[in-house]
């Protein structure tokens, strides 16, 4: 998981870098300075991003929720890739047309806010429309990068929440399992109670021999185990549990007295 965390951060950094690049590219495009080298750089960064995403994907295969999110990230990246490719094609055709037209067509529309940009494609000449589409594609890329970044943040938070819930359920599981491990057999229950009592009696005898003062307490615990035990387990209801425990203590104390007497008698006869 720590591994994933660092990878994730690395990925985020890359995303941010990509975003920075994209923004600068946008500026370049606006100022008609985009050349093949810039396009190649964008592609390079995208490829890097793609590999790191794939690595991440193989590492998080167990956490399928993360996997889903990463897969969608990867898909978005692939879409970006496709757009860049179409852009490249458009650019090459544009170059040809540009040489034909011989006029500067890049300065016409105002691209200050890419997200709100809604050009009237129908009214502009065919070549211009193509450029518009290309630039809108670029703006979309920035948007996507931002979206991806936001999603990464949200995913992180969500992942933390899920882990919290998971640990809660894990604890719950443990608790239930511990309870479920008692053997559901009347015979075994009686036998283990019998052994507890025998052990208790031995302990009491030892205590009497040692002139112990806490005999009653030991015996009370034994009583509590024997009587309170099964009643406490009953149907898992808290009320029954409390009742059982109470019964256990009461009879346990009583039992303590009895055992005490019995043990003393035994000790005398011994």
């Amino acid at each position: 998981f720590k591994m994933n965390e660092s990878k994730r951060r690395e990925l985020e950094l890359k995303l941010e870098r990509l975003q920075g690049h994209l923004i600068s590219h946008k500026m370049v495009i606006i100022h008609n300075e985009m050349d093949d080298i810039t396009l190649q750089r964008i592609e390079l960064i995208q490829n890097q991003l793609e590999t790191s995403l794939s690595i991440l994907l193989t590492e998080v295969h167990s956490q399928s929720d993360l996997r889903v999110r990463l897969t969608s990230l990867k898909e978005e990246l692939l879409q970006l890739h496709a757009r860049i490719n179409t852009m490249k094609k458009q650019r090459s055709t544009l170059m040809d047309e540009q040489s034909d037209l011989g006029s500067n067509i890049y300065e016409e529309p105002d691209f200050s806010h890419c997200s709100n940009f809604t050009p009237e494609i129908e009214n502009v000449p065919e070549s211009q429309a193509r450029i518009l589409r290309q630039q809108r594609g670029n703006g979309g890329m920035v948007e996507l990068a931002r979206e991806v970044h936001d999603k990464a943040l949200v995913t992180q938070q969500l992942e933390r929440d899920i882990r919290d819930i998971e640990s809660i359920f894990h604890d719950l599981n443990q608790i239930v399992q511990e309870q479920g491990e008692t053997v559901d057999s009347i015979e075994e229950g009686i036998e283990s109670a019998f052994n507890d009592v025998k052990r208790g009696q031995r302990d009491v005898r030892k205590a009497v021999e040692n002139q112990g003062t806490n005999t009653v307490i030991t015996a009370a615990i034994v009583g509590g185990v024997v009587v309170g035990g099964p009643v406490g387990v009953a149907a898992g209801s808290t009320i029954m549990g409390a009742l059982g425990a109470l019964g256990g203590v009461v009879t346990g104390l009583y039992g303590g007295n009895w055992l005490n007497k019995q043990a003393k008698r035994d000790a005398v006869t011994d």
Partner: peptide, 20 residues
Amino acid sequence: VSCAYGQNEMMQKEVYIFER
């Protein structure tokens, strides 16, 4: 009894303690 009923099932019938 042990082979016919589990302890939990008997407890649902309000039999809470089993003794020999």
